[in-house]
């Protein structure tokens, strides 16, 4: 794409943007395997405890889950727009779009905070007396719910930090229209976080 042009035009410093993107994708594959293992656990336990998973999923807040889906999808859109803008030399618009992406990521976490707090309030947290009294399947469901959405939430938090650093880079022109591979790769990471949520949302909140 555009970077291959600019790479050859730029100065004597050697740069390999395609190589950098390959490296990023390789990292994303390790993430895929990390979450893939958890999805496998979910699939097997759901298969072994269909009724308990069915009932437990009804307790999750679909509205909050759907809201977070909208938030992440929107943030993915603002992310690609930020990359698109920097490529056109529209620094301010790029910063605005990236800032919006970070704000949406924070909104996702705030939502998650309220969701988890409500669950804690109902005594539904790992090793709680409430859950201990319930069936094995319920415990597995909530164990997976907390570990999978928790690990995903951690990725969102890492995304907030990563995108904030890149935002500063854009402001300081370290990331600029001739060299925005860092923004590009951060975007790839952010979209992967979005894709994982695309699967988490129906599996935990919708299938009842």
């Amino acid at each position: 794409m555009d970077q291959t042009h600019t790479a050859s035009e730029s100065s004597a410093v050697h740069r390999d943007d395609v190589g950098a993107r390959i490296g990023m994708w390789l990292f994303l594959f390790t993430e895929l395997i990390l979450f893939g293992g958890l999805f496998l656990l979910y699939a097997v336990y759901r298969y072994l405890h269909p009724q308990e998973f069915h009932e437990a999923a009804k307790e999750l807040n679909v509205v909050l889950g759907a809201a977070n889906t909208l938030i992440l999808l929107t943030s993915s859109f603002t992310m690609v727009m930020s990359i698109s803008y920097i490529g056109e030399g529209e620094k301010k618009k790029s910063i605005a779009a990236l800032g919006l992406t970070i704000a949406l990521a924070l909104a996702f976490l705030v939502n998650k905070y309220f969701e988890w707090t409500a669950k804690f309030h109902h005594g539904l947290y790992p090793n709680s007396p409430e859950l201990a009294a319930r069936s094995h399947g319920d415990n597995l469901f909530y164990g997976l719910y907390y570990s999978m959405t928790g690990l995903h939430g951690l990725h969102v938090l890492v995304g907030v930090v990563l995108l904030s650093v890149v935002l500063v880079y854009i402001v300081k022109d370290k990331v600029n229209p001739d060299n925005f591979i860092v923004l590009d790769n951060s975007g790839l990471y952010w979209h992967l976080v979005d894709i994982i949520w695309i699967y988490l949302f129906p599996l935990f909140y919708l299938i009842t």
Partner: peptide
């Protein structure tokens, strides 16, 4: 996921 992969990524 395919839409995100093909166009956004």
């Amino acid at each position: 996921a395919s839409l995100v992969l093909l166009w956004f990524m």
